[in-house]
Amino acid sequence: MIAHLAEKHQGLADDMVYDKREFACIVCGLVCARRETLRSHFVRKHTQHYGYSCEHCGKEFKIKGDLTTHTRLIHRESPVICDVCGKTCRNSHSLYTHQKHAHYKAKYECPLCHRRLVTQANLDQHVLTQHERKEKSVCEECGKTFFENYDLRKHMRIHTGDKPYSCTVCSRAFARHSSLSQHLLLHTGERIYVCDVCGKSFAQKAGLICHRKIHSGTLPPLPVIHIDHILKEFIKK
């Protein structure tokens, strides 16, 4: 039913899927910081509509960004030329990053602190979290503050030592689900994090972050890599 609403009645689905204050998924309870992140989560996890297929191998995806990542990593896109300045970029993602920072500057300015953001939604979220919310959740152990109780609960695992997420391959435990996901990438044998400067690849995001420090000058933001489909295929084996 929810999948049908998401595909056929988008406006109604928006009202059902999003909690306006916390961007919480009504199906599984996942809380996201941004509306766009929750929308992607909902489509990936709670619908069966595969609207994008790879022209090279036929593999289907629910999110266009996942198809773009798949094409870049598996089929190695050819270099793309920027139609604004003529610069040659390694792939479409590098082109997007280049144009975003070189030609399409953030134009939405916060009237309170003058920080500039790319979209109106980013600006609204910034004002809400940085300037309007007064009540904060405070960690009684170290005094660190959080806007959401959900974030405080995750933080408390640092003090309690609780590690509820265990690897099904080697039994290593983690405090965060995201840490477990990054760990599982080691078992897949794939190296999906690729340096956009020299092309060296890494199995984990942390490896790429450390590696990028050897390159001088201003570097573009880290690429967004969706790993859910990779882990899902690995778990099926």
Rank of each mutant, 00 (worst) to 15 (best):
T119I: 15
T119L: 14
T119M: 13
T119R: 14
T119V: 11
Q120F: 13
A121R: 11
N122V: 04
D124A: 13
D124H: 12
D124C: 10
D124P: 01
H126M: 02
H126S: 03
V127D: 00
V127I: 14
L128F: 11
L128A: 14
T129K: 06
T129N: 13
Q130N: 14
Q130V: 09
Q130Y: 07
H131T: 08
E132P: 00
E132N: 10
K136P: 06
S137M: 15
V138H: 15
C139Y: 05
C139H: 12
C139T: 07
C139I: 05
E140D: 15
E140N: 12
E141N: 15
E141I: 14
E141A: 14
E141T: 15
C142F: 12
G143T: 13
G143Q: 07
K144M: 15
F146P: 01
F147Y: 14
F147E: 08
E148S: 04
E148T: 07
E148Y: 02
E148W: 08
E148D: 11
N149C: 11
Y150E: 07
Y150R: 01
D151C: 08
L152C: 04
L152Y: 03
R153I: 04
R153G: 03
K154D: 01
K154V: 03
H155E: 04
M156Y: 08
M156N: 06
R157I: 01
R157A: 01
I158D: 07
H159Y: 08
T160D: 03
T160S: 11
T160E: 09
T160Y: 05
G161C: 08
G161E: 02
G161Y: 01
G161S: 10
D162H: 12
D162I: 02
P164H: 05
P164V: 08
P164N: 04
P164Y: 05
P164E: 05
Y165R: 04
Y165G: 01
S166R: 10
T168M: 10
V169C: 04
C170Y: 06
C170L: 08
S171Y: 07
R172F: 06
R172I: 09
R172P: 00
A173P: 02
A173L: 00
A173E: 04
A173G: 02
F174V: 02
F174L: 08
F174P: 00
S179Q: 12
S179N: 11
S179P: 04
L180W: 02
L180R: 00
S181R: 10
S181C: 13
S181P: 05
H183V: 06
H183S: 03
H183Y: 10
L184E: 06
L185G: 00
L186E: 01
H187E: 01
H187C: 08
T188Q: 02
T188K: 05
G189P: 02
G189W: 05
E190P: 05
R191D: 05
R191A: 13
I192K: 00
I192P: 00
I192G: 01
I192Q: 00
I192W: 00
V194D: 00
V194E: 05
V194T: 10
V194I: 13
C195M: 13
D196I: 07
V197K: 04
V197T: 13
C198S: 14
K200P: 01
S201K: 10
S201E: 07
S201P: 09
F202A: 03
A203S: 14
A203G: 07
Q204C: 11
A206I: 15
A206D: 13
G207S: 11
G207F: 10
L208H: 00
L208N: 03
L208K: 02
L208T: 05
I209C: 14
C210M: 15
C210H: 14
